[in-house]
């Protein structure tokens, strides 16, 4: 997978590039609009990550030129302003997704993969993490073969974590996915639900699956060193 990052803030560009390379992407980086436009117009990328506030040629302008030149690579916009008009303007110019700074890298990765997947991946009906099994059709959960009763919110939370097993998901991502944006920022609702989920899933087992990564979020993983 070939990916172009156009971002004038070097530090942001570098950690995004580093993170993507760790996920086995081939990454090119441009630090200004002109260089970005030149790269994007010459090569066919699978994904372009585009900052809006760029010296030289602005992000929205690059987007317009790309679409005019029939370059159809999905574009994920990064921005530090998130007014609704601006979002609408960029979606109209051909953006595929939108991410407001400061973002968790995990979120960028999830969105990038969603854009690349395009056609829905064949999602198996059963999710497995270690000895934990989630049946997506019947919404039944078993640990070591034993059935666990979960409320619908607890199930949604566990399924979200398990479907990104091994990846740390931030509270913001969890709230936006399992609840909605209104809950963001103020409540400890995620922590309370995770505690309840742990009591049901992990308490009876010495081998823990739900891990807290301080400062980053939560992670469901069979590995022990995540904790």
């Amino acid at each position: 997978m070939r990916c172009l990052v156009i971002e004038d803030e070097r530090k942001v560009a570098d950690f995004v590039a580093r993170g993507l390379r760790a996920e086995r992407f081939a990454v090119d980086v441009a630090y200004d609009g002109q260089a970005g436009w030149e790269l994007a117009s010459v090569y066919d990328y699978d994904l372009i990550i585009l900052d809006l506030m760029l010296p030289g040629v602005g992000g929205t302008e690059i987007l317009r030129r790309l679409r005019r030149a029939r370059k159809e690579a999905p574009v994920l916009i990064l921005t530090a302003r998130d007014s609704t008009e601006q979002k609408v303007e960029n979606f109209e110019a051909g953006a595929d997704d939108y991410l407001t700074k400061p973002f968790a890298f995990a979120e960028l990765l999830v969105r990038a993969k969603a854009l690349l997947r395009r056609a829905p991946a064949s999602r198996g009906s059963v999710l497995r993490v270690g000895d934990l099994e989630l049946d997506r059709l019947s919404q039944q959960v078993r640990r070591a073969g034993k059935k666990i009763d979960l409320t619908s919110k607890e199930y949604a939370l566990l399924e979200y974590l398990a479907s990104h097993a091994g990846r740390v998901l931030s509270r913001t991502m969890i709230i936006e996915h399992v609840w909605d944006q209104s809950f963001e920022g103020l409540t400890n609702i995620v922590d309370v639900y995770v505690r309840h989920l742990r009591a049901k899933v992990d308490d009876a087992h010495p081998h823990k699956l739900i891990h807290t990564v301080r400062g980053a979020g939560y992670c469901v993983s069979d590995e022990q060193d995540k904790a």
């Binding site: 803030e9 950690f15 580093r18 530090a80 700074k101 400061p102 995990a106 400062g215």
Partner: peptide, 30 residues
Amino acid sequence: RTPLAALRGEMESVVEQARALPEWRDRVGS
């Protein structure tokens, strides 16, 4: 927001590194 994004990205990469010392991860996590 922009410097916050850089700060967060750099720190996350430390926290999520399996090789990092638990004590470091805890401090950076904090």
